[in-house]
Design a protein around this nucleic acid. Structure first.
Lengths: 234, 234
DNA sequence: CGAGTGATTGAGGCAAGTCAAATGTGGTGG
DNA sequence: CCACCACATTTGACTTGCCTCAATCACTCG
């Protein structure tokens, strides 16, 4: 099913180690660090806004890297409550599992292109090449680090502290020329921070009123005072 | 400093692969799975109740396995708010890092004995033995899985759902003859679940009043109806 | 330029937090 | 062995930060 849909829509297949698209940041090309060593076949593939990439508990057949666009990884409760565990931005690897299935679902936030390799081929490479095995471990470990930081946020920070942390994270990860263009809506931010979209909006309005940030459209944000934002972040 | 204190208090050094203490569950002996392969030296060591094992951001010199007792891993905010990321019970490995430092601090909840090996020797073994490298990865991946589940709990579950989840987790991990002896106090439980100790206590009282659990002392709990607890867990 | 979705703002409610007091309990020394 | 003490837990009364529900506003994109 997934394979069919991939084959039907694949737009480009290449031997990795070839040139990397402009959206992939060179110093953080985690995928290349693996595929370059072992000559794995990487395929490019695109998803539309809100399209599912894989579901929770689905077999983990592929490992992905965002080329352009943005992805949300999340879990759902039976009544629809959602917790987004991470946002994946250009250059990020996602969907890497040590076990057989995906622990979270993944969806494109906006139209998104990914590069992907078969999980089985990575596993095989890791069995031969210790460098690859080490890389898989460190990628999982940095996801764990993020999750540990996020548990602190979700369990113990106030709404304003959460929003401040979020803004500083996004500023670090996607600011260009001091401005960030958020790909996600207020509901996504709320579901990432364990808040409602209204609470996120109120916190942003308050930061705007205090001159800590500026808007040019709801999703174009300029941080005017990172120091004060850090102070609000506990 | 750490090394000194370790040397001063070490009570037993052995080549691993020897017999395992009775408190370590045989089917989940993650440590043995590693050390058995490469003949690493494991040392036993004990900590008193509330003693720090390592601090946040401290160099990760050792990897630990609980032999007996219980350990909490946590992060602190500057004003003292605490988030416990995990409890480590007999058989569990903790303190395993891919990077140079510990991401969370660790403390003994009660008097605790651990087995430990040098991180550097594990790293070395992983460079030679692909089985070891794979094991390190899967151990980190299962910590990540727990953290992802816990983010959902912290971000989206109600107080009663959190406590129900906690009880089912502890029942699974440390119930003997249908009864569990919790090593941690209500404050630890609250800091694990993102609640206050009072809220934890009220939820437990309510479950007791509904006949879902029974007490013999505040920390000796017997689950009388796991199905109803599952229903409360969303 | 208008429709539709996303964002903001307001008013009121409630789940969980805070503060405080009473009760229970395990550990220890007389 | 038991009485006491220190601390853990429970329970109560009240507060509050965030949520819910609802209405308006403002982009974005046909």
């Amino acid at each position: 099913m997934l394979t069919q849909s991939l084959n039907a829509k694949a737009i480009n297949t290449q031997i990795s180690g070839g040139k990397v698209g402009p959206a992939v940041h060179p110093v953080s090309d985690q995928f290349g660090a693996i595929t370059g060593h072992v000559g794995l076949v990487a395929t490019e593939f695109s998803y539309h806004k809100d399209e599912e990439i894989y579901g929770e508990d689905e077999p983990a057949e592929y490992v992905y890297q965002v080329v352009s666009g943005a992805v949300r990884s999340y879990k759902l409760l039976s009544d629809g409550r959602r917790q987004i565990g991470a946002f994946h931005l250009p250059g990020d690897v996602f969907g890497l599992e040590s076990g057989a299935t995906h622990r979270l679902a993944a969806e494109a936030i906006i139209d998104t292109t990914v590069r992907l390799v078969k999980r089985a081929s990575l596993e095989k490479a890791a069995g031969t090449d210790v460098q690859v095995a080490r890389k898989l471990w460190t990628m999982t470990a940095s996801e764990l680090r993020h999750a540990e930081d996020h548990m602190l946020l979700l369990g113990r920070k106030t709404a304003m502290e959460r929003v401040a942390t979020f803004l500083l994270e996004m500023d670090r990860r996607l600011a260009v020329a001091g401005m960030m263009a958020l790909p996600m809506c207020r509901r996504d931010i709320g579901d990432y921070l364990g808040l409602t979209l209204e609470t996120v909006s109120r916190a942003l309005s308050q930061l705007h009123a205090q001159g800590i940030l500026g808007f040019s459209g709801a999703r174009q944000i300029v941080l005017r005072n990172r120091q004060r934002l850090h102070n609000l972040d506990a």
